[in-house]
Every structure is written in C-alpha cells, then in structure tokens.
C-alpha cells in the first residue's frame, strides 16, 4: 500500500506540473471548435491500438476506427468524471464498439503488416501517462500479481487472444484460463476501486 501511495503522489506531481487541461470530452459536449480534431490527436493512437486487436484487415480497421471516433464524439455528453476517467470512458466505448463490429463482419486475417510505425509514439504515450492518474493506479495493482497472472491479463485484455488460444499458448486447461482471468479482473477491480478512493482522500487532505 505504501508503494501505491508513493506511485500516486509521483504521478500527481507530473499532472500538477502540466497544469489543468480541459477534458476533451467536455470541449466536445460544449461544441468547442476543433474539438473533434483534438480528440483524434489525443486518443487516435490509443483507439487505433485497440482496433488492431480485433480487426486485422486494413480496410475494416480504418472503417472501424472512423466509426468509433464518431461514436465517442457523439457520446461525449454522457461522460461523467465522477464515474470514470476520460481515458477509461474512451477505451470502454472503443472496445465495446470494436467487439460489436466483429458481430457484423468476418475476421479476415491479413498477411500484410500494417504500415503504421510512428516515431513519436513514445512521446505520445508519455503524454497520456502524465495526465491520467488512473493509469498509475492500475499499473500498481497489476504489479501486485504474480508473473503468470500478469501474462494472462496481457494475452486476454491487451493482446486480444481468445481463451482457447491462451490455453494453447500457455498450455493451461481452458477452464483454468477462464477462472483465473475472471479472478484477476475481480481483484484488479477491487484494488483499483480501493486505491482510487484512497487517492481521493489524499487529494482532499492536500487541498
């Protein structure tokens, strides 16, 4: 718990140094000029990365990313920062839309690699990390898991492998894969909610 508090304090320092930026979703809800462009600049790469997990065909991915960004724009007025952070809200919409998109198409695995290497991507990721304390909280929670459980989360949630694929990769029974991922998500949810409440208390105490 002490290391978690330290992580949170360090991340908050980075956020305070950058100043208080308006939420992109707030700007969209107010119909701020250029807000859609800002959405793409801030979260386009993240949405692209999420889409790549579910859609392998370049054309499907481009169409899917376009639909998802418009969906996020239209949902901006539903964003409630008391319920979730901006990055959580956006990632949730993106993931749900891409999963639903899979219902409508057949996955076409393409042998061609996507031409999408971005030399500024590390700077982009750092900018997201600096502004979102929730990312630090979740990272701390994940680091408390053993290596096998971290790998299960990585393969399922991050890399998008199915249970049967994970079972083959790790040579674990299918039922065990399901149960362990479920338990990991529950533990992560509980730990994050506890640390998030603690963080709010620290924030209030520090004024």
């Amino acid at each position: 718990m002490n290391s978690n508090v330290q992580n949170i304090r360090q991340t908050r320092k980075k956020v305070d140094t950058l100043g208080n930026d308006d939420s992109i979703l707030d700007l969209i809800a107010k119909d701020h000029p250029g807000s859609f462009e800002m959405l793409i600049e801030k979260y386009g790469n993240l949405v692209w990365s999420i889409g790549k997990k579910f859609l392998y065909n370049q054309s499907d991915l481009e169409d899917g990313v376009q639909e998802v960004l418009v969906a996020i724009w239209k949902s901006a007025d539903k964003f409630d920062r008391n319920k979730a952070s901006e990055i959580t809200f956006i990632s949730m919409i993106a993931r749900r839309r891409f999963i639903d998109y899979l219902r409508k198409i057949t996955k076409h695995k393409s042998e061609d690699s996507l031409d999408d290497e971005n030399k500024h991507i590390n700077l982009y990721k750092e900018s997201l990390l600096n502004k979102e304390t929730d990312l630090a909280l979740v990272k701390s929670a994940i680091e408390e898991f053993d290596t096998d459980d971290q790998e299960l989360l990585n393969l399922s949630v991050y890399q998008g492998y199915s249970h049967s694929e994970i079972s083959d990769i790790l040579n674990i029974p299918l039922g065990t894969v399901k149960t362990r991922i479920r338990r990991n998500l529950m533990k992560l949810k509980d730990t994050f909610e506890t640390n998030s409440r603690l963080n709010k208390v620290i924030h209030l105490n520090n004024g």
Partner: peptide, 25 residues
C-alpha cells in the same frame, strides 16, 4: 458492463507501458 471499465483501463495502461508497440494511427 460490470468488468468493462477495469478491462478498458487495463488495456490503456498496458498500451502506455508497452515499449515494443510503436504503432500509431
């Protein structure tokens, strides 16, 4: 959507800390 917020946040966290993934839109 019981697990969706934490799954979404876990995804974003792993993406931000993934030094191997250099892809972008």
């Amino acid at each position: 959507d019981y697990f969706e917020p934490i799954a979404a946040l876990t995804d974003a966290t792993m993406y931000v800390h993934d030094d191997q993934d250099l892809s972008g839109m």
